[in-house]
Amino acid sequence: MKSFSALALAACTFALSSWTAPAAAQFAKPADAVKYRQAALTLIASHFGRMQPVVKGQAPYDAEAIKNNVKLLSTLSELPWAAFGPGTEGGDARPEVWSDASGFAQKRDAFKENIAKLQTAADSGDLDKVRAAFGNVGASCKSCHDSYRAKK
């Protein structure tokens, strides 16, 4: 039993260390990081966009559906950032992501804080609070895109 516990501990330690490794070490090549972050951001945009008709009053408000969607968005909002490490330049990300890393981190943190506030608003069941928080998330997306995403 002791050897099994030691083996399990070693496996957990290895798994955790692989999650905390530098971004470049998590991807076989920089293009893999670009694909990963683009996929994560596409999912974020999809789930965020699903709420837009409700927020605009074009679809009925289903508090539980919004709450579940925001919960998923909260999880998704954690994903793309590891794929922006040194050596992962490319895609639609402008060079300023890396040359202004602290500014990029501030925008990322503002986005994540606004997602957390959207979760609180969704949990309240109050559509007016959801609308306000939704607008703040959208503004944080736009702010980051304006500064760090290449224009198409």
Rank of each mutant, 00 (worst) to 15 (best):
V54F: 10
A65E: 02
S147I: 12
A25H: 14
K29Q: 15
A24K: 11
R108S: 08
S5E: 10
T20W: 07
R94L: 09
F27S: 07
A28F: 04
D109G: 10
L72Q: 04
C12S: 10
L7P: 04
A39L: 14
S17M: 09
A40K: 04
A150E: 15
K142D: 06
T88Y: 13
W81I: 01
A6Q: 14
G90A: 08
A133Y: 02
D128F: 02
K71G: 11
L118N: 00
A101I: 10
K56N: 11
S140M: 03
I66F: 11
W81M: 02
A45F: 12
K71W: 11
H47P: 09
T20I: 08
S3E: 13
S74K: 13
G49H: 12
V130F: 09
A10N: 01
Q38D: 07
D92I: 06
L9H: 04
N69R: 06
K152D: 10
A25Y: 13
A82Q: 15
A11P: 02
D128Q: 14
G57E: 13
G125T: 01
A31F: 14
C12N: 10
S124H: 08
S17G: 09
F48L: 11
P80E: 14
D126I: 08
A122E: 05
Y148D: 04
I44E: 07
F84S: 02
A82R: 15
V34Q: 13
A133K: 02
A139D: 08
F104W: 03
K129R: 10
S102F: 09
K35L: 06
Q26G: 07
Y61N: 00
R37M: 09
L127F: 00
K29T: 06
A139V: 04
A31R: 13
L127G: 04
F14T: 08
F134E: 08
A93E: 05
F27W: 06
A15I: 00
P95F: 05
M51P: 05
A28P: 03
A93T: 02
S17Y: 09
A45H: 08
D32P: 04
E64M: 05
L9C: 09
